[in-house]
Design a protein around this nucleic acid. Structure first.
Length: 208
DNA sequence: CACCAGGAATGTA
DNA sequence: TACATTCATGGT
């Protein structure tokens, strides 16, 4: 008997096809985007990233060496720029002093996650996004859309982050590609159908 | 005008 | 542990 989560995944994949996530040109850009998109529309994140690129500041090394107020002006469209400029400096420093992605690649997933969570500005979702899309570790990313999906379809009693993450990881197999695609599809579906009319009859998950 | 967007830190009880 | 508040821009 297939789990509901697999049924949902199949329907979303059939409806939207592959999403090619994370949308970025480099691993540094994924990390930067993960910070900038915190409670912020992706459209505004794109503007901020374009601003960074125009000054050649869309790398962790460049951010590490730049003034916080310069970063702040670039990322202003993404909101919370006073906080996020500091957060970007924090994560940039973390990668620089640890030898970038390569320098951290030998760590276990659990240890790497702990270290990411120690960086001020990196919470569970941001840490897991980096673990999955940058380090290719089998960690499921739980965002607001994912929680909403689980609640609307009554797929879990507990709806906190850890419970929902465990639900996905226990029922999908630890497949990085599936985790990457499933999270992307949940976001895609939410933007496409679930904004104004939750579970309307046009939604691919109607009746599931 | 209110409300939301691919959250996280901080403070309170 | 479980909520409430704060942070800020831009689209609907």
């Amino acid at each position: 008997m297939k789990h509901k989560l697999i049924e949902i995944y199949d329907k979303l994949l059939k409806e939207f096809s592959y999403q090619h996530w994370w949308p970025a040109q480099s691993k540094d850009e994924i990390v930067i985007g993960a910070i900038l998109t915190q409670n912020t529309a992706w459209k505004n994140v794109e503007k901020a990233i374009d601003n960074l690129k125009s000054l050649d500041l869309c790398t962790l090394d460049a951010i590490y060496k730049s003034d916080t107020d310069i970063i702040g002006r670039c990322i202003k469209p993404a909101g919370f720029f006073n906080q996020k400029s500091v957060y970007l400096k924090n994560i940039a420093k973390f990668f620089v002093i640890n030898g970038s992605v390569e320098g951290l690649s030998e760590l276990s997933t659990k240890e790497l996650r702990r270290r990411l969570l120690d960086v001020k500005g990196i919470g569970k979702e941001t840490a897991d996004s980096i673990l999955l899309y940058v380090f290719k570790r089998p960690v499921f990313v739980v965002d607001a859309y994912t929680k909403r999906l689980i609640k609307r379809h009554n797929l879990s009693i507990n709806t906190d982050y850890d419970s929902i993450q465990k639900l996905f990881e226990d029922n999908l197999g630890k497949d990085v590609e599936v985790f990457c695609e499933y999270h992307a599809l949940i976001v895609k579906n939410a933007k496409e159908f679930c904004r104004t009319k939750p579970l309307c009859d046009r939604c691919p998950l109607f009746g599931v």
